[in-house]
Design a protein around this nucleic acid. Structure first.
Lengths: 161, 161
DNA sequence: GGCAGGTGATTGCATAAGCAACTATATAGA
DNA sequence: TCTATATAGTTGCTTATGCAATCACCTGCC
């Protein structure tokens, strides 16, 4: 299989140039942007990115509260990781836990006024960051295309809201 | 800046549906695929993904050796993180450190025969995983497009090799 | 009703990673 | 030449995270 230049997917034992750039680019973009967005949020609002995500999902949920397990799934964290994260947010007064009346095992995380205020302050920073570092580079139809790409890779995993 | 129009980026205070799917899809795809690829490599070869990346970069480098700082940059790890990672790999006999004759401060990480063997075994698994979970979903010209997208977001960050 | 197995949340423990401080060496400037 | 500053790598410490075990509760089946 003598690939003269590199027209085809290259040998099966190695990624071709094109594949490499498509895949590694994803890794680099994710790593770089996550780090930058986290640093920005932390610098301007003293709020780690994961904490921001919790506040955001909770704020957007029905009644400004979410079950622990749903939250864990939304922000892609293990349940134990989420327990600890909510511990920290509760300690800082940004969320509080309430019991679930229909299932005594469950807890809700809900926003406190301080949490809502923190989120409102941080939201603009984060959204501006996402736009400036990422979305800005793509036109509407390109964004749509990207979304369809992700849908191919993970069918049905699109965020509901 | 082909498309600077931005017809309706939705309100400035919130991400629109399209933006949300383009951005969050990236996060989800990265998280899901990283986890899956790491688990696969760990299960079949008892090798974490970051260790695999070290072996891969070192193997592809001139003389099968790389400076610590270049390696850290390649696999997107802090220098202290890399020190510890190389500690583990050295303990497991997969790489060894050698001094740099032209700069007494520096060290090279280089492959041991065991490291080379481990990499050869793991490479097929990982490449198959990347293709099966990600690249498979895109045609050649779509891969090229993705690569160009990443290049827009992080100009000049494309992998050299 | 009562038991078996499943699910939600938490905890103990282990690990990977970053930051800041430190050591040793290199390089540039007076 | 000597000094100041920058760089390569390591170490101490802290933190976030996951897995496995655990506890409490729910649900379905007899």
């Amino acid at each position: 299989m003598a690939t003269t230049i590199q027209p085809i997917p290259s040998e099966p034992g190695e990624l071709g140039e094109r594949e490499l750039r498509a895949w590694r680019g994803l890794l680099r973009v994710h790593a770089t942007l996550s780090k930058a967005l986290d640093a920005e949020l932390e610098a301007e609002h003293d709020l780690p990115l994961t904490s921001y995500e919790v506040l955001m999902y909770v704020a957007d949920a029905e009644g400004e509260r979410m079950r622990m397990c749903d939250l864990a799934e939304s922000i892609l964290l293990s349940r134990s990781g989420l327990t600890r994260l909510i511990d920290r947010l509760e300690r800082d007064g940004l969320v509080c836990r309430t019991t679930c009346s229909s299932d005594a095992r469950g807890s809700f995380a809900c926003l406190t006024p301080a949490g809502r205020a923190k989120l409102n302050a941080a939201r603009a920073t984060h959204l501006a960051g996402v736009r400036r570092l990422f979305l800005q580079h793509f036109g509407p139809e390109e964004q749509e295309l990207l979304a369809s790409f992700w849908e191919r890779v993970l069918p049905g995993a699109a965020p509901k809201r």
